[in-house]
């Protein structure tokens, strides 16, 4: 069952000189965890912004939730940005309540417990560490029980142990809720650790140049022997894949 179908003919900025995405097409199955890997500046964030409805272009066909005629309003969509993007004037609890209806506020305590912030509800974001702020943004995204979750390199500037624990948290929450995920990263190891399938983007103007199904058993280990062997084999076959070339 297809959860997300993306077809973008041409996305450009300005007068058409700066084409970012060209002939971009892929679909994501329900419950699937898809990672999109590409070189820096290839348009990964633009792609997620288009899926989320923040940006658009003529000639795009993006359908959600197993219905070609569905627009984004009919699909519960969560988005975890590169930066946590919490409202600094709201407490942690209020930041999560912001995306909920009043009758759903009782869920907040459970969510905070799930992300390990049970006693931090009355704190303001600036009183929290970077890792804690990310966890609040994860809790906010899962508060709406998203059918489709978009993540834009959310663990980028974190130290390695924090990033590892947040990845585990993400895997656990996605498993519990059966969420379909599109995860953008430039880190192939992270993609192998998390994803069922990896799509590789070319350099700008970007298109999907390759896709690999990660047929490794779960739970996986970061930098585990099997994971590293899988990565080495892929790199041996396509040495320039991370630079956005398949030659």
């Amino acid at each position: 069952m297809i959860e997300l179908n993306v077809a973008i003919k041409n996305k450009h900025y300005g007068d058409g000189e700066n084409t970012v995405l060209a002939k971009m097409g892929f679909s994501v199955k329900k419950g699937e965890f898809v990672a999109i890997v590409g070189p820096s500046g290839c348009g990964k964030t633009t792609l997620l912004n288009m899926i989320s409805g923040l940006e658009s272009c003529s000639g795009q066909h993006i359908s959600y939730c197993n219905n070609p005629s569905n627009n984004i309003d009919k699909c519960q969509l969560g988005y975890i940005f590169q930066q946590p993007r919490l409202m600094p004037w709201l407490t942690v609890r209020e930041n999560i309540e912001l995306v909920l209806q009043p009758e759903e506020y009782h869920q907040v305590d459970d969510l905070l417990t799930q992300v390990g912030l049970a006693n931090k509800g009355e704190y303001f974001p600036r009183q929290l560490s970077g890792g804690m702020q990310r966890r609040v943004s994860i809790a906010r995204a899962f508060a709406i029980n998203p059918k489709l979750l978009l993540l834009d390199e959310p663990f980028n500037s974190l130290d390695a142990p924090t990033a590892t624990r947040l990845r585990q948290l993400l895997i656990e929450l996605c498993r519990q809720k059966g969420t379909t995920v599109v995860f953008v990263t430039h880190d192939l190891q992270e993609a192998i650790y998390l994803a069922d399938r990896i799509l590789f983007m070319s350099d700008s103007p970007s298109t999907i140049i390759h896709q690999s199904i990660v047929d490794l058993p779960k739970p996986r280990r970061e930098s585990g022997v099997a994971e590293l062997a899988w990565q080495a084999q892929l790199m041996a076959t396509y040495p320039h894949l991370l630079a956005g070339r398949i030659d």
Partner: peptide, 12 residues
Amino acid sequence: MKLFFSKNDVTT
């Protein structure tokens, strides 16, 4: 689900 980060929280 277990709690994460309980030991390393910066703010007290």
